[in-house]
């Protein structure tokens, strides 16, 4: 997160008709979604894989990670790809890209205690005039899926 200064640029997105915010500096690019293929054998939190100009990116299911009902990717979805600082070559699909906004850091309340057992990717709340917006941490999403896959190590049997 960009907490070095007293301001932070956020990018708000819409998922399942709710507004969420990402730190602008965590985002590598946002683009029209390219067709996504499923990854056989991966947990449901892995939505699939996309080819973005010859490079492959893993898509995580942001809905599942947020505890929302999941749905099949739609052509009008937008692809948000994160910077490597958040985790290797991954992104999410959002319904739409809302806005960019600069907020003073004092208006962001970090989530109480960073409980390692809490799988939520919400790392704080942005206090906005109208309503509070949850701030999402892509790296928390990445780590969550990593843990999911790590703990279900394939049963190994040597002959």
């Amino acid at each position: 997160m960009n907490t070095s200064s007293d301001r932070m640029t956020l990018c708000t997105v819409r998922v399942d008709n709710q507004q969420y915010a990402f730190d602008m500096l965590a985002i590598r690019e946002a683009n029209q979604a390219t067709p996504c293929v499923r990854v056989p054998g991966a947990p449901a939190e892995v939505l699939g894989m996309v080819n973005l100009r010859g490079s492959l990116f893993l898509l995580l299911d942001i809905r599942l990670l947020l505890g929302l009902p999941t749905r099949e990717p739609a052509p009008q979805d937008l692809l948000v790809v994160f910077r490597p600082s958040q985790g290797e070559a991954f992104g999410v699909l959002v319904d739409s890209l809302d806005d960019a906004m600069v907020v003073p850091t004092r208006k962001i309340t970090p989530r109480a205690e960073n409980d390692a057992n809490d799988p939520s990717p919400i790392c704080g709340v942005v206090l906005n005039e109208h309503q509070p917006i949850p701030l999402l941490s892509p790296s928390l999403m990445y780590r969550r899926v990593k843990n999911l896959i790590g703990t279900r190590a394939p049963l190994e049997k040597h002959s």
Binding site: A42, M49, E88, Y142, K146, I149, A153
Partner: peptide, 8 residues
Amino acid sequence: HPLLRGLG
């Protein structure tokens, strides 16, 4: 992708 390596 490194995340998928864990699946085997």
